[in-house]
Design a binder for these strands. Sequence first.
DNA 1: CGGAGGCTTGACTGCAGTCAAAACAGGTGG
DNA 2: CCACCTGTTTTGACTGCAGTCAAGCCTCCG
Lengths: 238, 238
Amino acid sequence: MEVRDMSIRATMDPRQLGTVSLFEGLDDRGLERVLQAASIRKVAAGQAIFEQEDAADTVFVMVAGHAKVAKRGADGQETVIGFINPWEMMGCVAVCGGTGYPGTATAVEDSWLLAWSRATIERLMDEHSRIARNALSTISGRLQSMQTRLHEVSNERVERRIAHTLRRLADASGRDTRQGREIAFPITRQDLAEMTGTTLHTVSRTLSAWHQQGIVESARQRIIVRDASALERIAESE
Amino acid sequence: MEVRDMSIRATMDPRQLGTVSLFEGLDDRGLERVLQAASIRKVAAGQAIFEQEDAADTVFVMVAGHAKVAKRGADGQETVIGFINPWEMMGCVAVCGGTGYPGTATAVEDSWLLAWSRATIERLMDEHSRIARNALSTISGRLQSMQTRLHEVSNERVERRIAHTLRRLADASGRDTRQGREIAFPITRQDLAEMTGTTLHTVSRTLSAWHQQGIVESARQRIIVRDASALERIAESE
DNA sequence: CGGAGGCTTGACTGCAGTCAAAACAGGTGG
DNA sequence: CCACCTGTTTTGACTGCAGTCAAGCCTCCG
């Protein structure tokens, strides 16, 4: 399920960790120490990284690959909380808040992650108060984006919600190609439906319509945004 | 709009501050210092405490009264993020995250609040690392409850969402009366609609139906839950 | 007593969910 | 290399939940 591979750590430049919001502003020696305290895990596509309600004892940073975090409710329905890009962290809320993981994280591609145990992260926070402050501001940002999503799901029509979501995905996880901006990991209609509070049928119909209009290009588990401004118009028009 | 009244502070027992999640675990001397750093404000019902997008420079703790925090979107629609009860704080996310306030806070009753400036709260956090940790865990809790609400709005039918919301309100902000458990502050159908992502019409119809069944008692801006277990059944039944 | 804000109810409608079926792509094993 | 099987996507037809439109009532407050 998980394989450790120490050689990767040896070849990694600690300064890359400075990209991670949690470790922003640390000096080189601090980053070095943080890296030394980490362990590395490889997770194959489709495998779980952590499970909902498991005691939260590890903070992860994605090094390469992508993961999906989804919460499943009592009724078995899933809601996609978000996708994790390289150099983003996950698990921090649960570890800091002292609760279980809020959802299940699944690798959607073969991925490499750095991992720190709860005890280690707490020690690092003690040594570098900057890390605690970073955690606070990162979580605050997530809370705000959650509030925005709540507002959207509560007040907006499906098409517009999909447009908003797709725009954000293209923005945060996109990769420019000759055809347009492509979501940089495999994502199904079902995933998009679970992010927007709708059904895969409606997502499929919507994307088909947008395809007709030349706004998106799409194939199995791939979506390319050709006309970002049209998407913007759908998302924001009165 | 806001009136300062220092005499209240003089008569307040610092230990009451220990009830506030942000200051949990501080010793008496710490609480004393926190209280000394606070200023007091009185806000009349209907008045704003802070406005959406204002630079977040003050953290508040409700001493007596209740406030509503609502976010209004680009389209002018409002979403109620939550209600603030006595000894709960607000503004912390924005102040800690370094962003503007995520919504507008309005007193729904005449209220008294303690207030700390950003600089003061940061100094207090430096002096007492416990405060920073508390902030982290409080915000984590809010994030999780946001995720739960997102899941509900995405996947559940209106009636069930209202049941969930009403249950939580009665739980967190209820007061036991001979008729049942009453929401302890004035709340309109519109407020409830904006919390659940529906319209005041639907809320009204739903409450009427529940009234028929003896589940709730309600009047202008007042709701009493008579049969909590029935509500539970509506909220959780398959 | 009059006005404003809050609540209720009815009738209608349409968005999007459900049900159903089929095409398609990709991976696996023979 | 082909056959099969599973998971993904598309499309159509139907339906019902809840939003919209409309009207009127109630309650509190000035």
